[in-house]
Simulated assay, not measured.
Amino acid sequence: MQKKRLSWVDVTKGFLMILVVMGHYPGELDFPLATYIYWFHMPAFFILSGMFFKPILEKGVTKKVIHKRFMQLIVPYLFFLVMITVVRYGIEIGSGNFDISWYLSDLWTLVIGGRFVRGAYGVFWFVTTLFFAYLVFLWMTKYFNRTKQIAILVAFYLIAHIESLIAMRLIGGGPAEASQTIPMLWNMDVAMMAVVYFALGYYMKNIWMDITKPWLIAGVIGSVAAISLDWFNIIDYHLSMKFLRYDHLVFDLVIPLSFTLVFVGVFQFLSSYLSMNWLRRIEKHSLSIMYLHIFTYIVLKDFFEYGFIEFTIFGIIVPIIASIIIQKLVPHGKLFLGGFSPKKSKTPSTQ
C-alpha cells in the first residue's frame, strides 16, 4: 500500500514539474497554456506537501523537525543560489562588467529573494515560502485545536487577499512591479496563502489518498466550468502566488482544488495500471529541474533555436544531467539536492 501511494504521488509531482517548466516558456503561444497552468500547479505542490505533514505530538522534538526541514529545503536553496550566481558573475566579468555597484545591488536583491529575484532565480520563492508555510502550520497544530486552526487560516486567507488588493488595485501596474513595492524577505507574506493550500492537503488527506468517483467528477466539473468561463470571456481569472495576485476569494480555492482533484485522481488511476517510471524519474530530480530549467535557457539560448518543445526538453534533460553530476562528483551532493536524513539515535542494548 505504501509503495502504491508513493508511486502515484511521485508520478503526479513529476507531471507538475513538467508544467513548471512549460509555464516559464518566455515565448508566445496561441493557446493560453501558461495561464491555466498557473491556476493550480503551485497550489497543488503545497497541497501534496501538506498531505505528508505530521504534527508534533512528542515533547523536545520540535527543533529536530525544524532542523530537518531546513536541511532539506534551505540548504539546497543556498547551494543553487550560490552555484548559479558564481556562473552568472563569471559570465558578467567575462563580458567586461566590472561595476562594483552593480554586483552589490544584485547581491542585495538575492539576499531579499522572493518576488524580487527574477530571471534565473524565478522559482526560488517557492522553497522559502514552503518552508515558512510549514513552520506556520507546525506552530498552529502544536498550540491550537482544529477550530482555532481554521479561524487562523481564514484570517490569513483574508489578509492575503487584502494585501493583493492593495498591490493590484491601489498600487496598480503589472503584478510583478506592483508586488515589489511591498517589501518582504523571502516572500514570507505569501506563506499566508500557501499555508491555506498546505492545510487543505493535510485536512483532506483521506480524500487525496483515494480520489473517489464523485470527487473526480466534481473536480472535472469545476475545471471545465472555469476554462469555459475564461474561454468565453465571462471571467478573467489569474493566480500568481509569487506576485501576490489573488483574483477571487472563491475561485482561489475552487479552481486550484478542482484541477488538483482531477490530476491526482487521473494519476492514481493510471498508476494502478502503468508504471510511468519516466515521470517518477523526473520527480527524483525535481529539485534540480526546478532550480536550473530557466538558467539552462539563459545559458543555451544563444546556441540553439528555442521553441516551446525545445525549451521544455532542455529544461528537463540538462538539469537531470546536472543532478546526476552533483550526486556523483560533488562532496555531500545528495545533501545539496535535498537528500538530508537525520541519523537515528542508537538505543543501548540491554542484557
Rank of each mutant, 00 (worst) to 15 (best):
F132Y: 08
V87I: 12
F132V: 10
S323N: 12
Y203Q: 06
F126M: 10
A34L: 08
S271G: 14
F144W: 15
F46T: 00
M241C: 12
L279W: 07
T181S: 14
P214K: 03
V250C: 11
E163A: 04
G60W: 10
I166H: 04
G96I: 10
S101C: 07
S228F: 12
L337S: 04
L170W: 13
G96T: 13
M209V: 08
T312N: 08
E177I: 07
I37N: 00
L185W: 04
E283L: 01
L257W: 01
E163C: 10
N233P: 06
I37Y: 00
I316V: 15
K346E: 13
F303C: 04
T147S: 12
G222L: 05
M140F: 15
T128P: 07
P319T: 13
V154L: 11
H161W: 14
D10M: 05
L78V: 14
T212N: 13
T181K: 15
M184R: 01
H161C: 08
T128R: 00
T129G: 05
S105H: 14
Y89W: 15
I326G: 02
K54R: 14
F53G: 09
P32Y: 08
G119M: 03
S105R: 10
S288M: 03
A322W: 12
M241Y: 13
V9N: 06
D247S: 14
G219I: 02
S286H: 00
V127H: 01
V65Q: 11
Y291Q: 00
D302T: 06
L249M: 12
P43T: 11
T181M: 14
R281P: 00
Q327A: 09
V65P: 01
F80A: 05
I255M: 04
R88A: 08
G96K: 05
K343L: 03
E305W: 13
F124I: 13
G27W: 06
R146Y: 01
I93L: 14
A133F: 01
G119E: 12
H24V: 08
K205S: 13
L335H: 02
V9R: 09
F336N: 02
R69E: 08
P319M: 11
S95T: 12
K346G: 06
G122K: 03
P55F: 10
F269Q: 15
A44V: 02
I235R: 02
I207C: 11
